[in-house]
Amino acid sequence: MKILVPVKRVIDYNVKIRVKPDGSDVELSNVKMSMNPFDEISVEEALRLKEAGLAQEVVVVSIGPAKAEETLRNALAMGADRAILVETDDTVEPLAVAKILKSVAEAERPGLIIVGKQAIDDDSNQTGQMLAALLNWAQGTFASKIVIEDGKATVIREVDGGLQTISIKLPAVVTTDLRLNEPRYASLPNIMKAKKKPLDKTSPSAFGVWTAPRLKVLKTEEPSGRKAGIKVKSVAELVEKLKSEAGVL
């Protein structure tokens, strides 16, 4: 079985986000970028399945600028076998990403696609579900455990009420949650070897997908600082402040 893993280049989660002075977007110049944390978990899970003898090849794919090659090289250093870069400078929205991934999946014919449940830059949480719908494949979202056996995947999902266990037929799309695993660090020798591993480059036009964004950002601004809390002496005083000051009652 082949496993396909989409990865995205985002601002590193340790970096404090700054808004551009004109409010048009967040500042990306001279900012540390890295692989989306949920995608790191996806790569790690694919590698574990391969190491368990349940997959023969792990292919990673990224849709973004030329600098996304660095993110793919990191996935190769972790242990992925091949990488595909769909190069575009456009801001690609989830539906366009899903359409491109559908074309890649039809060409690669994986038995399983493992997708991070969301990217930490836009928090859309849409790509995996859209991809499953476009491929007409089964899906398991928010996975905290994946077991592959007899052509099926047993997925334990994190839901509001606790955990839910579902069984889905392969091929399928699974989106990963934070508690699925702990991603490994790439060793220096593997980082050097990753520079020689295959990396195919293509473009969205090769798949006939229009990537220009349909949504327009009007303004970006930082959230206002939180005000200090106060203590009240009674429930009556609390209710009064909620009415007169907070205006929520």
Results as ranks from 00 to 15, higher is better:
Ala83Gln: 05
Ala83Phe: 06
Ala83Lys: 06
Ala83Val: 07
Ala83Gly: 08
Ala83Trp: 02
Ala83Met: 06
Ala83Ser: 09
Ile84Gly: 01
Ile84Gln: 02
Ile84Val: 15
Leu85Pro: 07
Leu85Met: 09
Val86Glu: 02
Val86His: 01
Val86Gln: 00
Val86Ser: 00
Glu87Trp: 08
Glu87Ile: 07
Glu87Phe: 06
Glu87Pro: 11
Thr88Lys: 05
Thr88Val: 09
Thr88Trp: 04
Thr88Gln: 07
Thr88Asn: 07
Asp89Phe: 06
Asp89Asn: 15
Asp89Leu: 11
Asp89His: 08
Asp89Glu: 15
Asp89Pro: 10
Thr91Trp: 13
Thr91Lys: 14
Thr91Phe: 12
Thr91Ser: 11
Val92Gln: 00
Val92Lys: 00
Val92Pro: 00
Val92Ser: 00
Val92Cys: 00
Pro94Met: 11
Pro94Ala: 12
Pro94Phe: 10
Pro94Leu: 11
Leu95Asp: 13
Leu95Tyr: 15
Leu95Gln: 13
Leu95Lys: 13
Leu95Glu: 14
Leu95Phe: 15
Leu95His: 14
Ala96Val: 06
Ala96Cys: 09
Ala96Thr: 06
Ala96Arg: 07
Ala96Asn: 09
Val97Gln: 07
Val97His: 00
Ala98Phe: 11
Ala98Tyr: 09
Lys99Asn: 10
Lys99Trp: 02
Lys99Ile: 00
Lys99Ser: 13
Ile100Trp: 04
Ile100Met: 11
Leu101Ser: 03
Leu101Gln: 01
Leu101Thr: 01
Lys102Asp: 10
Lys102Ala: 14
Lys102Trp: 02
Lys102Gly: 03
Lys102Thr: 15
Ser103Leu: 03
Ser103Met: 10
Ser103Gly: 07
Ser103Glu: 15
Ser103Val: 00
Val104Thr: 06
Val104Pro: 03
Ala105Phe: 07
Glu106Val: 12
Glu106Leu: 14
Glu106Met: 12
Glu106Asp: 14
Ala107Trp: 02
Glu108Asn: 05
Glu108Phe: 05
Glu108His: 04
Glu108Val: 11
Glu108Thr: 05
Glu108Pro: 07
Glu108Trp: 05
Arg109Met: 13
Arg109Asp: 14
Arg109Gln: 14
Arg109Pro: 06
Pro110Met: 04
Pro110Asn: 05
Pro110His: 04
Pro110Tyr: 01
Pro110Phe: 03
Pro110Val: 03
Gly111Lys: 04
Gly111Arg: 04
Leu112Gln: 01
Leu112Asp: 02
Leu112Tyr: 01
Ile113Gln: 03
Ile113Cys: 03
Ile113Met: 10
Ile114Tyr: 10
Val115Asp: 03
Val115Trp: 01
Val115Ala: 04
Val115Phe: 07
Val115Cys: 14
Val115Glu: 01
Val115Gln: 04
Gly116Tyr: 07
Gly116Asn: 13
Gly116Glu: 13
Gly116Asp: 09
Gly116Ile: 06
Gly116Ser: 14
Lys117Arg: 15
Lys117Asp: 08
Lys117Gln: 14
Gln118Leu: 12
Gln118Thr: 11
Gln118Val: 11
Gln118Gly: 07
Gln118Ala: 09
Ala119Arg: 08
Ala119Glu: 11
Ile120Asn: 08
Ile120Trp: 08
Ile120Ala: 04
Ile120Pro: 12
Asp121Arg: 10
Asp121Asn: 13
Asp121His: 10
Asp121Ala: 09
Asp121Leu: 08
Asp121Tyr: 09
